[in-house]
Design a protein around this nucleic acid. Structure first.
Ligand SMILES: [Mn+2]
Ligand SMILES: [Mn+2]
Ligand SMILES: [Mn+2]
Ligand SMILES: [Mn+2]
Lengths: 141, 141
DNA sequence: CATCATCCGTAGCCATTGCTACATTTGTCC
DNA sequence: GGACAAATGTAGCAATGGCTACGGATGATG
């Protein structure tokens, strides 16, 4: 057995994990801007408590995250005022929502029931490369 | 526009996000036990530094995580000794590895190149319900 | 068996994301 | 306008998962 040689090759396999960590880091931003866009679209405005109910977390968690996304130039916030999207945030929201819809439609066409497809697509969407997204689009056609 | 009615329905959409958070919580455990199994299989033993290279993180991050998984009865550790799997850890590793392989094979059969399929499957695997996994298996046949 | 490189543990820092408890602001209703 | 309810902010705690710096343990080599 070439077990010493095997040990030397371990580092080469770390790329997917590094990439997955990077993707997890943008996941909150993607979910939040998409939620803000949808809530404004559907109810006319987006409030801290709307997001808290939407994500099923406390208003404190939302308030803190919204402040960070404001610092990252994705959201616009003022105390006790509705939350708005920046241009940058709006672009990310459109892109994320489109990708999310493709993943959801793909799972349904694959034969997954709607309830499970909605749950799974909420996580899967953040781990889909442009190559995989293209493959899903081809399958949908 | 029925915007007040729209606000009332928001909470109903939180289920996928709650589920996604639950899945993220088990992600590290799944990746670790799978890695320990593979490293023992390929190199004869699994050391803290092997995992650090495998995941591309510091040995400190690995050491802390391994200790927690030991407390969760998934891994067996002693200071300065190789890391072993418990029965529970081994079962989780087998199940996770099988699921991971199905997701990877599925993406490749869908038309994704191997490099991207390996990256994407590393994240997607943790967000695949048994229903979606079944749909992927059907597609592979 | 002494030395030295490697491995691993500990201390302590930071960021993120969850929470409860409490304070403040805002808006509504009389 | 005052009172009350709802919305939002703030303080502070915990768990997780990154990191560097440092020191002790282990094992290989001469
Ligand atoms: Mn999502
Ligand atoms: Mn895995
Ligand atoms: Mn993984
Ligand atoms: Mn994920």
């Amino acid at each position: 057995m070439k077990k010493k040689k095997a040990k030397e090759k371990i580092k080469a396999r770390s790329v997917p994990f590094s990439q997955t960590r990077t993707r997890h880091a943008s996941e909150t931003a993607e979910d939040y801007v998409e939620a803000v866009m949808d809530l404004i679209d559907e109810t006319g405005e987006c409030r801290v408590l709307d997001l808290a109910r939407f994500f099923n977390v406390s208003h404190v968690t939302v308030s803190r995250t919204v402040k960070r996304l404001n610092d990252q130039d994705l959201l616009l916030t003022q105390s006790y005022k509705p939350i708005e999207l920046t241009e940058k945030g709006y672009k990310l929201a459109k892109k994320s929502k489109k990708r999310h819809e493709i993943v959801l439609d793909f799972l349904i066409k694959l034969g997954v029931d709607k309830a499970n497809a909605e749950i799974d697509s909420e996580g899967i969407e953040h781990h889909v490369s442009s190559k995989t997204l293209d493959a899903m689009k081809r399958f949908l056609k």
